[in-house]
Design a protein around this nucleic acid. Structure first.
Lengths: 334, 334
DNA sequence: CTGTTAGCGCATTCAT
DNA sequence: ATGAATGCGCTAACAG
C-alpha cells in the first residue's frame, strides 16, 4: 500500500503518464494497456497519494467546515448531512470548532487556506464585516450555512426565521392565545434569535397579543431555568415561544414545576425539531427544519460552485413547518 | 495570501531555506535575518501551503476520525473532545461516518491512507478480524476509541463496561430491588451492549436477583417503545437498566404510560450521561463517563504515539461513576 | 549561520 | 495512444 505511480508504471510496462490517465480517466487509453495498468494497481495494492495529487492539481478534494460547536444539539445532524453529500461527490471534510469567536474564526479560515481546501462551509452565530473581509482575503469558494448575511454578500443556505416566528404566533393566535412570551438570548448576540424575536414582535402586535420578552444569558437548558421561573411567576402567559428546543423544554419543566398544565394552562413551542422534541413530556410542538437537509443542501450548493454548475440563486431559503405535538394540542384520550 | 516561499525569500533577500528555517524553527537563524523574514512574511501575507509541506515532509498534521455516526447523541461531544486536543497539538481532523458498516470502514481507512493522515482515531460498534487486517495493511498509527478490542491488539481507550453494569446492579440491589430488567440491542451486535449485559447477568446472579432481558432491534427511543411496553406489561420488574440513556428515557415514558411511578414503582438507570439525562422527567440516574474526555484522552494518546512519547499502557481504561438522579432516588419535598 | 540542490508523488503539457 | 519532461511549494540533507 505504499507503491508509487512509478512502481505501477514499471509493473505494467508503461509510463507513469499512462497510469495517471487510466486513474483519472483523463484521456483515451487502449483497452489492453488499461487492463495491464489496472492489474498492476491491484497487484501492488496501489493507492494514489492524495497529497501529491493535491499539490500537482491544485485541488485537494477536501472542504473545510467551520462550526461554532459540533456538540450543540442540532449541529451534529447538520454535519452529518454535509458529510454524506460531500462523500457523494468524493469530497472529505476537515471539521473545526470556533466557539463563535471572531478571532478563532478568522484564524481558522486562514488555516483552511493553508490546507488548500477547495471550499468552505461556514457557520457562525452572527456575521460581521470582519468575516466578509477575511473571506475576501482567503479567496475561497464559501457557502454560509444557517448564518444570516443580511446584505446577501455571500452565498448562503437558510430558513426564513422571521417568517417562521410569525407563523408560530399566528398559529397560537388561532388557538386563542392572548398573551405570549418569547424566550431567547438577548438581542445582538445571535442573528437567528434576533430574527425570530423580530417576527414574534411583529406578529404579536399585528394580532393584538400581549407580548413579553424573556432574555436569557445563554440559550441552554440549565442556564435558562431560573429566568423562566422568575418570569412565569411574576406574569403568567398563555403561551411561550422559545428560540430553540432546549429552551422550550426548560420552559416545559418550569411550567410543570409551577403546577401549570401543558397545553391547557400554557402552550409551548420550540424551534429546530431536534431529537429532544419527541422525547420530552409532553412532546414538543416545534418549528421543523431538517438539520440534515440543511447541511446536505449547503454542501450540494458548494459542489455546484466548485464545478461551475449554473446557480439559480445565491441565497437558498429552505422551507420550515410547524410540527404540532402535544405541547400545544391536547392529546385525545382513546 | 498566495505568495510562495520563494516570494518571501526574494522579499527578505535570503534563500528559501532560510525562510523555511524561521518558519519551522528548525535551525538557528541570526536574529536580524529572522526579523527580515518575518517582516516579509507579514508584508506578503504569506501562508505556507500545507499540501506542499505535507508532500515534502511526509507528515500532514491531520488525523482521520472514523465514527459510526456523528449525529448519535454522545458522539458529537466526543468529537468535540478530539478536536480540541487535536488543535492543541496543531492537528486537524478529517471526519468520516461509517454507519458501522465493515465495507465502508475498510474503504475509509484506505481513503485516509490516501489523504496521508498522520494517524487514525477509530470507532466501531464491534471490532472484527477484518478491521485488524485493514489496520495492518494501512500501516497507520491507530487508537481505538470507545470500541472494545477483546484481545488488546490495538491501542485503545475505553471504560470498563462490564464493571460499570455490575456497579449498577449492586447499586440497585442495595436499594432492595429483587427483579431487574436489562434493555439493549440483542447479543452480537454491539460490543458495548454485550459487555454491559454480561456484567448485568453476572451481578444479578451473584445478588440472587431475578433478571430479565429485553432485546430491541435498534437502540433508539422510538424503536424501543413497543418492546419495552410489551415486556413491562407481561412481567413487571422493580428496576430497569438500559444500555444507553435514550433507551432509559423510552423506559421512563413507557413506565409512566403504564401509570408506574418512578422511582417508587420502578427505578430506571441509563448509560452515558448524555445531555438528555438532566432534561428528562424525572432526571435520569446514569453511568457517567465524560464523552468529551473520551475523545480528548484518545486524541492525546494518539499524539503520544505520533511523537514517540513513552506510553505506560496501550489500553487506557477511563473511570466511570453512577450519577444518582431522581429516577432512582425519590426527591425530597422541600 | 546561510545557500544550493535534490526530491516528495503526482498532473499536465508537449512531443511523437 | 503513449512517453518524456516539467513543475506544484515545500523540507531536508549537504555544502560552505
Amino acid at each position: 500500500m505504499s507503491a508509487t505511480i512509478y512502481d505501477v508504471a514499471r509493473e505494467a510496462g508503461v509510463s507513469m503518464a499512462t497510469v495517471s490517465r487510466v486513474m483519472n480517466d483523463t484521456a483515451v487509453v487502449k483497452e489492453e494497456t488499461k487492463k495491464r495498468v489496472l492489474d498492476a494497481i491491484a497487484k501492488l495494492s496501489y493507492r494514489p497519494n492524495a497529497v501529491a495529487r493535491g499539490l500537482a492539481s491544485k485541488r485537494t478534494k477536501t472542504i473545510g467546515v467551520i462550526v461554532p460547536d459540533v456538540s450543540a444539539a442540532f449541529m451534529a445532524e447538520l454535519v452529518r448531512g454535509i458529510e454524506d453529500i460531500a462523500n457523494m461527490y468524493h469530497y472529505h471534510i476537515i471539521l473545526c470548532n470556533s466557539d463563535g469567536q471572531l478571532d478563532r474564526e478568522r484564524d481558522l479560515v486562514g488555516t483552511m487556506w493553508e490546507k488548500q481546501v477547495d471550499g468552505l462551509l461556514f457557520m457562525s452565530p452572527k456575521l460581521r464585516q470582519e468575516h466578509i473581509d477575511t473571506f475576501e482575503e482567503a479567496q475561497l469558494p464559501i457557502v454560509l450555512c444557517r448564518t444570516d448575511d443580511p446584505e446577501k454578500r455571500i452565498p448562503s443556505v437558510n430558513i426564513n426565521n422571521k417568517q417562521a416566528a410569525i407563523d408560530v404566533v399566528d398559529y397560537l393566535a388561532a388557538k386563542g392565545c392572548k398573551s405570549i412570551a418569547f424566550v431567547g438570548a438577548k438581542a445582538g448576540l445571535k442573528s437567528l434569535t434576533d430574527e425570530r424575536r423580530a417576527g414574534f414582535l411583529q406578529a404579536t402586535e399585528r394580532n393584538a397579543i400581549t407580548s413579553q420578552l424573556i432574555d436569557v444569558p445563554s440559550e441552554t437548558y440549565s442556564g435558562a431555568l431560573k429566568f423562566l421561573k422568575d418570569a412565569l411567576q411574576t406574569s403568567p402567559v398563555r403561551a411561550i415561544v422559545a428560540a430553540n428546543d432546549e429552551l422550550a423544554i426548560a420552559a416545559e419543566h418550569v411550567a410543570q414545576d409551577l403546577k401549570l398544565r401543558i397545553p391547557e394552562d400554557v402552550m409551548i413551542v420550540g424551534f429546530d425539531n431536534t431529537k429532544l422534541t419527541e422525547m420530552s413530556r409532553p412532546p414538543l410542538t416545534t418549528v421543523a427544519q431538517s438539520m440534515y437537509d440543511y447541511g446536505a443542501v449547503a454542501m450540494r450548493f458548494l459542489t455546484k460552485l466548485l464545478s461551475d454548475e449554473p446557480i439559480s440563486t445565491y441565497t437558498v431559503v429552505l422551507p420550515h413547518q410547524i410540527l404540532e405535538r402535544e405541547s400545544t394540542a391536547p392529546k385525545f384520550v382513546k
